[in-house]
Amino acid sequence: MDLLLAAHIVKNGLLIGGIYGGVALGLSLIFGVMRIINFAHGSLLMVAMYLAWFLWKTLGLHPYVAAFITVPALFGLGYLIQSQIISHLFTREKALVVEPLSALLLTAGIFLVLDNLVLMIFGPDVRAVSVDIAYANFFIGEIPVNIPRFIAFVASIVVASGLSYWLKHSNMGRAIRATAQNRDAATMSGINVPFIYNVTFGLGVAILGLFGALLVPFFSITPTLGLSFGIKSFIVVVLGGIGSIWGCVVGGIVLGLFEAVASQFVTATSAAIFSFGLFIVILLVRPKGLMGKA
């Protein structure tokens, strides 16, 4: 394999991997704090993408401008889902047996409802935003780098840094971390745990609002798009270590590079088999993930 090809592979792997990591951040945050695997994660990304597309289609908003609407909108949606639906589970858990799968099932129900509501509203047609920036490249040496993908890549690094800084240094961030470590102790020291949960879930979903807007310039949208991103995100989070913010970005990049390299030697279909295999192996051999604390 020549050097140029290798450089191309690394570039492709890094770009798509960064995007995988960014998309998975919210899943990891929510799991880290609330111990919930949000099965509807991919569907919420899909909703964000539809929203960005809708704003472009009706108001002509550039997706990057639409992000200023999709982020708060998705925060609101996440906050509502947590405070109106999932919170019931927590109030019940206090009294009754803890059923770790209930949350997964509940969010699976939300996934079915969201995917099919979008199908009912927007129909099955494939939608896409057509903006010129989608094809713009800059060059590193001879290697073209697609600008919107690069922006999404940078965004995931920025969001991850911002998020981990904020969790460490702000009051709210500290409260979130305290809740994640010990819910009961947090309650006793006066933290409003249900509120923290609402905010965390909202935040996790708001990140999807950002990526929804950043992805529409180059991805086309269908109501069923969520599941493939959702499954990718599960793999990323497990790879990186569940609940670890930086692990998530690293996990994404590892998966991206793995797929990029594997796809050069085998067909994409076999590469998909390998990435599921990698996922199983990591879970079995190192369940804490690459970056997780053992």
Binding site: A108, G109, I110, F111, L112, V113, L114, N116, L117, M120
Partner: peptide, 9 residues
Amino acid sequence: LGLHLVIYG
């Protein structure tokens, strides 16, 4: 389209 899955969910 998809109504029965909304009901399922």
